[in-house]
């Protein structure tokens, strides 16, 4: 009886592992495939095997990808634009959340609902009119053409998360601060903000993940390489190296790398942030 119980326990354990490994393989194998062929020769693609062992490892593919893909410039742009968007979203959403949540005024509910409405508006529906507007104001092909919509469409989520997190900050702290003669701004930036550190991280991660992927707007509003973001390395390469698959694979692997590496290093924090944000929102 006891033996059988142990055996069935072992079987369950085995099954658990089998399922988890199977799913992991599905999730990861395409990426391994990508890496494998990015080091091969273009003609070696046409095999019927699952993976190839390249005759000679073609590091040159990555050199081409790195140089002709404007990798460094586009990476810098991506980090800069996304970084600024994150900062602005945090700043604006904390300010608005504080005003709507803590301060007393008639329209607070209305303004909050209005700002949250943005969550329901599909970002791509504003593509056509915004193109017109940015052209009129001379904003196309500048960083603003990306920054404004990125911040505007991440703001509702930020605001939503900030208001719900703010509830957990005890009012007594603020009261004490007011006694000491603090102004509102100091209260927000010196008392509330430090208390919201982990929520800020959540908003930052969510905003970053939202905008990191975006390229439709970038490809519509931008024309010179000056502000182009990382996805363009891939988009431009399919034309540039249309007859060399291996280099295309290399550029895909290269563009995917920064985000994956950062994720693997910070995975605990990021998972926590996403989990916190998603369950609330």
């Amino acid at each position: 009886m006891k033996m059988a119980g142990q055996r069935s326990k072992k079987i369950t354990k085995f099954l658990l592992w089998a399922i988890l490994i199977f799913v992991a393989v599905i999730q990861i194998f395409p990426l391994i495939w990508l890496l494998d062929f990015s080091l091969a020769n273009s003609t070696e693609m046409f095999t019927s095997g699952l993976l190839v062992i390249p005759e000679k490892i073609q590091w040159g593919n990555y050199v081409k990808a790195f140089v002709d893909g404007h990798f460094l410039l586009y990476l810098k742009n991506s980090v800069l634009i996304n970084g600024l968007a994150v900062l602005l979203v945090i700043l604006v959403s904390i300010m608005a959340a504080f005003a709507c949540r803590r301060m007393r005024w008639k329209l607070s509910m209305f303004v909050k609902t209005l700002l949250l409405m943005g969550m329901m508006i599909p970002i791509h529906a504003t593509l056509l009119p915004n193109y017109k507007i940015y052209n009129m104001l001379g904003l196309t092909d500048t960083i603003w053409a990306l920054l404004i919509p990125y911040v505007a469409f991440s703001l509702p989520q930020g605001l939503f998360l900030m208001t719900s997190f703010m509830e957990s900050v005890p009012v007594e702290l603020e009261e004490a601060a007011v006694m000491d003669g603090c102004g509102i701004y100091r209260i927000i930036f010196q008392i509330i903000m430090p208390m919201l550190k982990s929520s800020i991280a959540t908003v930052a991660i969510m905003t970053f993940l939202n905008n990191w992927n975006e390229f439709i707007m970038a490809s519509t509003y931008l024309s010179s390489p000056k502000w182009k973001t990382l996805p363009f390395s891939v988009l431009e390469f399919t034309g540039q190296y249309s007859s060399n698959y291996a280099v295309q694979f290399a550029v895909m692997a290269l563009t995917a790398a920064p985000a994956v590496i950062v994720y693997v290093i910070l995975n605990k924090h990021i998972t926590k942030g996403v989990a916190m944000g998603a369950v609330k929102g």
């Binding site: 988890l20 992991a24 996805p231 891939v234 694979f249 563009t255 985000a259 995975n267």
Partner: peptide, 23 residues
């Protein structure tokens, strides 16, 4: 496993779409 499952999520759509075109 949690880390592995999440990896595709942080890769840009541009890469994902082209990769799957090949797949």
């Amino acid at each position: 496993f949690r880390c592995v499952y999440f990896i595709p999520n942080v890769i840009s759509v541009a890469v994902i779409a082209y990769l799957w075109k090949f797949i």
